[in-house]
Computed example of a mutant assay.
Amino acid sequence: MEAPKIPVAAASDEAEAPAPEPTPVIDPRQPDYADLVLPGLEGAWRVEVPVDLENESVERPAYLYVLSNHTLLKEKQTEEALNFFNNVNNQIANTFDQFLNTEDFQSERFPKEKGYSTPKSFTAGTFVPEMPIDGVPYQFQIYLSESGKRQVVILLVIPQNIARESKLKEQMDYSLETVDFINSRSQAPSESANF
């Protein structure tokens, strides 16, 4: 999903003219299925997946969001940056008016078995809203990766009854194997979601 286009102010010859009020920018990557605003949104992806209902199979969207405390650290908001993961979880819990117990989260490694890549560790948990989305029960799979003060939260928002032929979970596991932090002070994170 594309990031919002921020309008660039036009240069003016009139020094006395007051600057126009900035137009609020709506980020189309933010969730449109709930009144949820995800902080530190770096990237968002959407795909249609087959979902098994009682008597039929239907297509429903699945979403992947990458969130980061990068901007907070860059703006020297250290306390907010260190509480980033908790703030993300609180946003989700408050939106659905439901308790999200992070004490149930566990450490997971990807790849899960020995492979060619170095295993990456995540704090991982699942949140299941009681309220269905578009008539289908969904779940949030939440993954936290940390490096020093830097935090990246990956949210996979998927229908609970994804049909067996969907390879989404397997593809997500492969994606988690590639999450990495880049140690470059002069370069901001790119759209490729490397941190």
Rank of each mutant, 00 (worst) to 15 (best):
N183S: 11
T95K: 07
F110C: 05
S145N: 12
L156S: 08
F84L: 03
E191T: 10
N55Y: 09
L36A: 08
A93C: 05
K149V: 01
F99W: 05
R46T: 10
N83I: 01
R109Q: 02
P18K: 12
N89Q: 04
F99V: 07
D104S: 11
V128L: 08
A9G: 06
L144R: 08
L72K: 13
L36E: 09
S147L: 04
E21K: 15
E191C: 05
Q171I: 03
S184F: 10
E130Y: 09
R150Y: 04
F195T: 05
K120G: 00
M172L: 15
V25P: 10
E48A: 14
V25F: 12
I158C: 08
D180P: 00
P111M: 01
N194L: 13
Y138E: 04
R46A: 11
E103V: 01
D13L: 15
I26Y: 09
P31W: 07
T78V: 12
I182P: 05
K149L: 02
I92R: 06
E21W: 07
I6R: 15
Q160P: 00
V152M: 08
R185I: 05
R109M: 01
R164K: 15
S190Y: 07
A17H: 05
K5N: 07
N89R: 06
L53V: 10
F85S: 01
A193T: 11
V179K: 14
T78L: 12
